[in-house]
Design a protein around this nucleic acid. Structure first.
Lengths: 340, 340
DNA sequence: CTGTTAGCGCATTCAC
DNA sequence: GTGAATGCGCTAACAG
């Protein structure tokens, strides 16, 4: 059986409170007793029970992280940022994979609450968890990350998706493209919606009409991007000369589809992604994309929770980060081949 | 303030014990009171406090997962497997990124113990944590994953690395290569050591001497693989015609280096990886590699912990999974590439 | 400075 | 069936 604070107290010939005091430095303790306590701790290999402490102090020093899929490099990067500063502040992170399943998301929200986490970082799968989050939020700090739920006053760390997609589309337009397709994410996600908006805005400004036929939902997955690209490439005429994929993963799927159709990138088709995950620079041609500060997003989210917890901030805060166009090879130099 | 079991008891006009009984089904309760309790729970939006329960029951239903780097696709896949079955069994997972830092690893081992996790899944960075793990292991089930620490009786989920590397090398030999280089991981990791062994064994059997000059440590990182390949390619003569990289990440780095040297893969240089992460099938040429059952490894690890916890297993168990050669394009075998 | 007392919120005897 | 009492291991008053 693991030693308790009382065992240590007995071994050192002092009271449990004294042991607690030396271990937490919460009050001055006679030097002699202090040494005895430390020795006893050593001898018994004593480790305080964090459960008991948390129960008493009403602080668990743990935060929950809910993501749709940890194997998605975007979320893995975010998670790393989260874990990293959480550790610095003495917090532990509970990893929750929602698998894009609203039910699972809901379950986790409850579990985290029961486990008394000090805060939650929530990348929602888009289900309408507004009520639940709102209710939870009254007791526990919640930071929405990457995706917003409209109408709740929780903190949020977001990227200016409209701006990002706008830049991406403008890049394509500047290269002379006019028939530009877009593979969107699920439009119930603010993120996907905003990227579509940015695309439309750029098209509008350039005086190019947006054709519904060139807008396909790729569900933010590799498979979805693959299927969407095939759809875009169906029907002999009216084909896009460029495609904006709303995530790198989808861009990769799209690339595979284009390849299967015998299209060369960038000669026959220009392609832009979104996220800048590591693979983007590794594939051939290297993917031009909109980079997001993934690591930083995770870091900021933790800091926002700590601010509320340790510095008592009350007002909701919303951080909007700027994405950045990274030009690589998948859009070519700008001369679009008309004939090929 | 969150409602407690006493609030519910008062609201329902019963004792706290009764509330506990209906919530846990631990004893029969009068139907009428039962309804009243349930109603009260609803009304007060009561959530049991898992800390208090855990303190009492000495079970937290949480397990710790220590990995070197969650952004490494290999570990992300493992983590997904872990999370997935942990959730099924009602466990929560605490994510710990050691960043390959022994100090951090040590800290996490302690933190997990203090948080009273019911088990630990440990992918060690290779520091000699034997003592610590051994001591911990006496109180908490520990499963070593992917990497072993010799001499401790903990459970382990491993892959037959020697066999995998042996197959990889034989593949290269069968294609007629004789000057085969290897990029290893840090040799203090059992994993890296065993892969090197497999390579040597294949070479020996083929009667090809192993030249130290063709053995380079790539540290299991992209950068390391890149640097190692540059070293292998230095010095005009005595160059390898094929290279076995002990991880896909390193293979990718190696690919970049080869490219910089103007070498075409597979025409000028054959390359095999290890792991079969998603990117492997996406790069060009698609990477021939040794696939590991990543997801399954995570799943098994959790099951081994649950076995000890809920079915009282005592004897240490060691599972050795078989890796599998996946032939794609990077060795120019002429066979069709396969998507896996 | 230090020991004693009193909970944190729950599950579990133990009587009734 | 059910309530009262007890304690999980710890920290925080409260007296000295």
């Amino acid at each position: 059986m693991a030693a308790t604070i009382h065992d240590v107290a007995r071994e050192a010939g002092v009271s449990a409170s004294t042991v607690s005091r030396v271990l937490n430095g919460s009050a001055p303790v006679n030097e002699e007793k202090r040494r005895r306590v430390l020795r006893a701790v050593e001898k018994l290999n004593y480790r305080p029970n964090a459960l008991a402490r948390s129960l008493k102090k009403k602080r668990t020093h743990s935060i929950g992280l809910i993501v749709p899929d940890i194997t998605n490099p975007f979320f893995a990067e975010v998670a790393k940022g989260v874990e990293d500063v959480a550790r610095e502040y003495g917090y532990t992170v509970i990893l929750c994979n929602s698998e894009n399943d609203p039910a699972r998301e809901r379950t986790y929200l409850n579990v985290l609450q029961e486990k008394q986490v000090d805060g939650v970082i929530f990348v929602t799968a888009g289900a309408n968890e507004g009520d639940r989050v709102g209710r939870l939020e009254r007791g526990i700090p919640v930071v929405m990350l990457d995706r917003e739920i409209p109408g709740i006053p929780a903190d949020a760390v977001l990227v200016d998706n409209e701006e990002g997609a706008y830049e991406a589309a403008k890049h394509l337009l500047a290269l002379g493209h006019r028939r530009i397709g877009i593979i969107t994410g699920p439009l119930l996600l603010s993120t996907a919606e905003e990227r579509l908006e940015g695309y439309k805005k750029a098209m509008r400004e350039a005086g190019v009409p947006v054709k519904p036929r060139l807008v396909k939902d790729g569900g933010f997955t590799f498979q979805g991007g693959y299927a969407a690209m095939h759809q875009l490439l169906e029907g002999g005429n009216d084909l896009p000369s460029a495609v904006l994929a709303s995530s790198d993963i989808m861009a990769l799927g799209a690339m595979k589809a284009a390849e299967e159709r015998g299209l060369r990138i960038p000669q026959d088709l220009a392609l832009v992604g979104f996220d800048d995950i590591m693979v983007a620079s590794l594939v051939k041609p290297a993917l031009t994309t909109i980079a997001q500060p993934k690591r930083q997003m995770g870091q900021l989210a933790v800091e926002m929770i700590v601010e509320r917890l340790e510095r008592g901030r009350r007002r909701a805060k919303r951080v909007l980060l700027r994405p950045k166009l990274v030009v690589r090879e998948s859009c070519g130099s700008g001369r679009r081949s008309d004939g090929a």
